[in-house]
Simulated scan of single mutants.
Amino acid sequence: MKKHGILNSDIAKVLADLGHTDKVVIGDAGLPIPEGVKKIDLSLRLQEPAFQTILELLMEEMEVEKVFLAEEIKEQNPDQFERTMERMAGVDVAFVTHETFKEMTGDAKAIIRTGEATPYSNIILQSGVLF
């Protein structure tokens, strides 16, 4: 049995298989999942698990060089925006419209669905390299 890090075998496998610039999405309960993209559904009920819980875990486990957020999060969910930005020290942050964001999820290696039920609580994490 694994002792440390993410115990969810689906998430652990996706992270282990990532290459440079591959993308993983953390989505709220309402984010549509494009056909053909692996969905890892962690939602238990509304707000569980929270978006920030999963973001914290992935930021610990994954080398992230860039993230994408919907521009709308700034005004529509300022608390979530602020908490997310606190985790992004040293990471390039790009903003796109929510419609563009949803289109970008089509080439993700996986979308991790949370129980989050606040608007625009979604992020694309782009893998970096350790060297």
Rank of each mutant, 00 (worst) to 15 (best):
I6H: 06
N8Q: 07
S9E: 14
S9N: 08
D10W: 01
K13A: 13
V14R: 07
V14L: 03
V14S: 08
T21N: 09
K23H: 02
K23W: 01
V24G: 00
V24M: 01
V24L: 04
V25Y: 04
I26A: 00
G27H: 00
G30P: 01
G30C: 06
L31A: 02
P32G: 08
P32T: 05
I33P: 00
I33R: 01
G36V: 06
K38W: 02
K39Q: 11
I40N: 01
D41V: 05
D41E: 10
L42T: 06
R45L: 12
R45V: 10
L46R: 10
Q47Y: 13
Q47H: 13
P49Q: 15
Q52V: 07
Q52K: 07
T53V: 10
L55F: 13
L55K: 14
L55M: 12
E56K: 10
E56W: 07
L57F: 04
L58R: 06
L58V: 03
M59H: 09
M59C: 11
M59K: 09
E61P: 09
E61G: 06
E65F: 05
E65P: 03
K66G: 06
F68M: 05
L69N: 02
L69A: 05
A70Q: 10
A70F: 04
E71D: 06
E72P: 12
E72K: 08
I73V: 14
I73R: 03
K74E: 13
K74S: 05
E75C: 10
E75H: 11
N77C: 11
P78L: 09
D79R: 12
D79H: 02
D79W: 06
E82P: 02
R83E: 12
R83H: 10
R83S: 12
